[in-house]
Amino acid sequence: MEEARVLLEAQRREALRRLASLTGDFHEVVAASRDSNADDEHDPEGATIAFERSQVTSLVQQVERQLAEIEAAFERLSTGRYGICERCAQPIPPARLQARPAARTCITCAALSST
């Protein structure tokens, strides 16, 4: 379980680094649009600014979801449920946990969920 904790902590650090970078990017996009006299509706560049803002917002939300999954994995670690599939209650193979430390399901159940 110590290996899982180390992997999850590394993922958390990386996600927080990406979140900080994306937040900075978002503030730059907002500042750039604020400093211009363009409005998104009538300026040809406005669509680009709106797209960039939307894209960065989506990426921030993706990282926030990843952080929530990592925190949930830490909770499973603390309660002894880490490495147990939430769907079939079978052990999640170590190779899957190595590749995706925050995995909630085994490969079989993950495949069933995506169909």
Rank of each mutant, 00 (worst) to 15 (best):
L8S: 10
V29R: 06
E9H: 11
E28K: 13
I92M: 01
V6S: 08
E9F: 13
T57S: 14
R13V: 15
G24Q: 07
R65M: 12
L22F: 10
E28L: 14
R96E: 09
A95K: 01
Q98K: 14
R76E: 04
V29Q: 04
A102G: 00
L19M: 05
R17L: 14
S33H: 14
D35I: 01
R100T: 13
V6C: 01
Q90N: 06
Q61H: 12
G46S: 08
Q55Y: 10
E69K: 09
M1G: 07
V30F: 06
L19Q: 08
F26C: 00
F74N: 02
A4I: 09
D25P: 00
Q55C: 09
S113P: 00
T108Q: 11
A72C: 04
Q98I: 12
L16Q: 15
L22R: 05
G46N: 02
A110G: 11
A32T: 07
T108S: 14
E52C: 05
E69P: 00
S78F: 06
L7P: 00
A68G: 15
R17H: 05
P91C: 09
E45Y: 03
R104F: 03
R81C: 01
S114V: 10
D35F: 07
Q11L: 15
A32Q: 13
V60R: 11
R96D: 04
E71H: 08
G24Y: 00
C85M: 05
S54K: 08
A68R: 06
N37S: 13
Q66S: 14
Y82E: 08
V29E: 08
F74E: 11
P101K: 07
A72Y: 03
A20H: 03
L19P: 00
C106K: 00
C109H: 07
I70Q: 07
V6K: 04
G83N: 07
A47N: 05
G80K: 01
A31M: 12
A50D: 05
R53Q: 15
Q61T: 14
P44S: 10
Y82K: 08
L77K: 05
I92R: 00
D35Y: 07
Q66I: 13
G83C: 11
P101G: 08
R5S: 09
E14K: 15
D40T: 15
E52V: 02
E3Q: 11
P94F: 11
N37F: 08
R18T: 04
L97Y: 03
G83E: 06
A31G: 09
S36R: 10
E41A: 12
E64A: 09
C109W: 02
L7A: 15
A73T: 09
E86H: 06
V29L: 12
L8Y: 01
T115Q: 14
R76Q: 07
A50Q: 10
A15V: 08
S78Y: 08
R17N: 08
N37P: 00
D40E: 15
R96K: 10
L67N: 01
A110H: 06
A103W: 01
P93S: 12
E45M: 10
Q62Y: 09
R96M: 06
P101T: 10
T105M: 13
S36D: 09
R87G: 07
R12E: 13
S36V: 03
G80C: 09
Q90P: 00
A72D: 12
C85P: 00
E64M: 14
A4E: 10
S114H: 02
S114E: 15
A68V: 02
V60M: 15
A68H: 06
R13D: 13
R81T: 13
R17V: 08
R12K: 14
Q98N: 04
T23G: 11
R65N: 13
I49C: 01
